[in-house]
Structures are given as structure tokens and as C-alpha cells.
Design a protein around this nucleic acid. Sequence first.
DNA 1: TCAAAAGTGTTCTTATTACACCCATGG
DNA 2: CCATGGGTGTAATAAGAACACTTTTGA
Lengths: 229, 229
Amino acid sequence: MSEVESFFKSAFSVDNVIFGFDGGDLKVLLIQRGAAPFKGKWALPGDLVYPNENLETAAERVLEQLTGLRGVYLEQVKAFGAVNRHPLGRVITIAYYSLIKISDYTVTPASFAQSARWHSMSEVGELAFDHNEILDTCLAQLQTKVRNAPVGFELLPPKFTLTELQQLYEAILVTKLDKRNFRKKILTMGLLLDLNELQENVAHRPARLYQFDKEKYERFVAEGFSFGL
Amino acid sequence: MSEVESFFKSAFSVDNVIFGFDGGDLKVLLIQRGAAPFKGKWALPGDLVYPNENLETAAERVLEQLTGLRGVYLEQVKAFGAVNRHPLGRVITIAYYSLIKISDYTVTPASFAQSARWHSMSEVGELAFDHNEILDTCLAQLQTKVRNAPVGFELLPPKFTLTELQQLYEAILVTKLDKRNFRKKILTMGLLLDLNELQENVAHRPARLYQFDKEKYERFVAEGFSFGL
DNA sequence: TCAAAAGTGTTCTTATTACACCCATGG
DNA sequence: CCATGGGTGTAATAAGAACACTTTTGA
């Protein structure tokens, strides 16, 4: 058995589903594989876990290699371990997802990729390995999460309008929400601080700007809430 | 140690949290370790995953070795992979939980255990490895699940009373529920078939017996529901 | 006749849904 | 003055929570 074959005899990796929001669609960051197997195919960014590296650290590393980003909300979803999911050997992978604001970061292809690009969720084609299954599972988990905790609020600029917040929810949940009901709900949660400022230079009535009440926000993250939308 | 050898030293296992119900407490099946490390300590039943074995198959195998049980509801929770979680090397573990009716099965210690025993959730002490953390995470997930799908109904006899069903929920959620509200809720779900039979030989007013409407039950399992208790 | 658990309704409060028009701004 | 998106309230319905007494049985 060659060294490479031995290496792949049994190993574990992390794969990251990096969701991004740019004010419109929900997108996912994919890399184009630079090496076999599946060379040239789009895939989730992932890497083998180093011997002295925690799983979460590995996921953070992959994220940072691609986006330069640290300290982002990152959550494990589950392990995928079908015997034949990797053609070169037994590799189980632990899937993580994170959620970032696209405009804040520059994507630079990491060593394990030819190129990296944001793809709209609706335009994701057939991916390498079992990555379509992983992506679907992560999206479902993100949607559950967003209904039960103030996740994704980091995706907005420091000062934002209620419409921007609503669009974020609509993008993640792939649904339309009623404007009045959304505002009622979000305002009665007491999570937002009205800055008493208005948008400027917009060709319509300017919207009020809000920011999060950091203390309450942290509390909600810790304790969860039910956002029945 | 070379880098390749380091990767070789890694392995993965499954650990099973087998919850059981006997009409009273919620219990968990623990084994007493027969070998170092943590020899003599109580632990979750688990084993290394065979090279040609899927993760879920391995979890099913561990369950069967202990209880003789097949085809039970079994769900992956997540991977635990802290670098030093296993004193002998790098071992990440995938946690699964299942839920069975204690009275239906005889526990026989598997090869990897000195003995196996049901422990009430309130009497679980310090476990080997990071198994307390795994157990806590699995319980939390079971509780979430039970609020959103008809899980655990398999734990009751084919004909059961509403009080028995309520006690099951109370055991899993570790809470008291209002009898009238519970009955209203569960009956309006249309999940139960009134058998028009009564208990016999009980020293109190005999209760009506119910069974599940199998078709509706399957539909709820597939689609989920919200059991706001 | 006692103990034990079964069974049963109403009221109050809160959350959810559906829905349509006027307002402020820049071009 | 027009196009654009911002902002607002109410009524009807549904869901959830709190709460106490009578019934049936075996011992």
C-alpha cells in the first residue's frame, strides 16, 4: 500500500458550509477542486483535521483560509460517514456551517482550491462527494436555528433598517413575510434600539435606522427564543 | 512521530445514549468499563467503527450487542472530537441516541463491558471520557425532538392510557404537565384511536385504552408537528 | 366507606393572521 | 408629479394557561 493509500485508510475531515448574505440572496461559498478526485468540480471547502487540532478549530481554520475571517458564529451540524463517500478511502467528515456578510470579506482561494466563488443557493449544481446532501442538511439546520435564536443578525451593517432585517429572514427562510406583522414581532421583542436616525440620499421616504441591544441580544443567543414566522 | 503516522493514530468510534422508559423515570443504559482507560468506571456503550461499516450501522451494532434490539429509532446527534478526549490517542466519536422500552428487552453486557445497567437520569454520576457532556447533549436533543415529532410513542404498550402517555412526556421533559390541557392537546391532534376498552383489575376507576392511529402517526413522524407543552 | 386515579369545561390571556392606505424623498 | 419603498392599526381567530370537582373501581 502506498503512502497516500495508507494515509487515506481512515481519516477525518471537516467540511464548511459558509452561508453568505449580501442584501439579496442567500449564497454559499464553494471551491473548485484543484486535485483528484473530482478535480474541477465545485465542492464545499474542507480539509483533513490535524492530529492536534480540535474539530472546531479545523473548521475555523478552513473558514479563515478562504475568507481571512475569525471569530464567526460556527456550528457543527453532524458527521457524514458513509463507507464509500470518499473514493480514495474511508474518510468521515464533520460538517459545520457559518454565516457571514459577503461584502465585508474578500474571498481568496485556499491551498486546497483552484478558485472560490459565491453561488446563489438556487444555482448550486451537482457537487463533489456527498456535498449536496451536506449542504441540504446544513440549510435545514440554519433555518431551524434562525427561528429559535437571533442568528444571522451579524450579517447586517451596524445600523440597519427593518426592511433589511426582514429581507435577511426572507432570504434564509425562502419565504415572504408580512411587513406589519414582522415589525410588530421584532419590535416587541425589545431586541432593537431605535437610533432616531434616518437613511440619507435614498429616492424614497428614508427609513429609520436601528441597531441591536447588545445585552439583550447576547441573552437571547444564550437562552433562545421562539420566532414564530 | 511523522505526520503521516500521526494521522494513522487517529480513529473514530460511536457512542450510544440508550434512553429507556419503564413507566416511571427516564433511564439511560451504561456499561462498566472492563479495560483501561477508565477501567471500572461507568460509560456510554460505544465501540470503534469498523473499516467497512457505516456510522449508523456501528451504532445499531452496539445497541444490538447490548440489548438484542434491531430496528429501533436511532438518531445521530453530533461528533465530539476534542484533542485530548481519549487518553490513548486521537479518537473522535459520533454520538447517537435511541429510545426503548426497558421491559421489552434483556440487557446483556457486550464484549466491551464488565456489566451493563440502567441508571436513572438523576443518579448518573461522573462518567468516563467526556461522556457526561455527550449524555447532556443527547438529552437536550431528545427533549427538542419530542416537542416536534411523535417520538417515544414506541415506548408504550400497544394499548395504553392517557395518563401513561402523559407520564412518558413528563419523564422525558422532566416537568409536570396539566392533565386537562395535555388531554385536550393530544386528543385534538387526532393521533389516538379510542379502543372503547377499559383497564381491568385496577383499584380505582379504570381508564380508557388507546392506541396510535398508525397512518397519522407515520405522517407526523415524516412531517413533524409542534407539541407546545 | 375509603383510597386512588380517571375524567371532564370554562374563562382569561396572549399570539397569530389577514389586510390597505398615506407618507417622505430624489429625480 | 411620479416612482419608490417606508410606515402604520385593527379585528378576527387560534392557542395556551390556570384551575376543582365528580366518578368508578377494588380493597
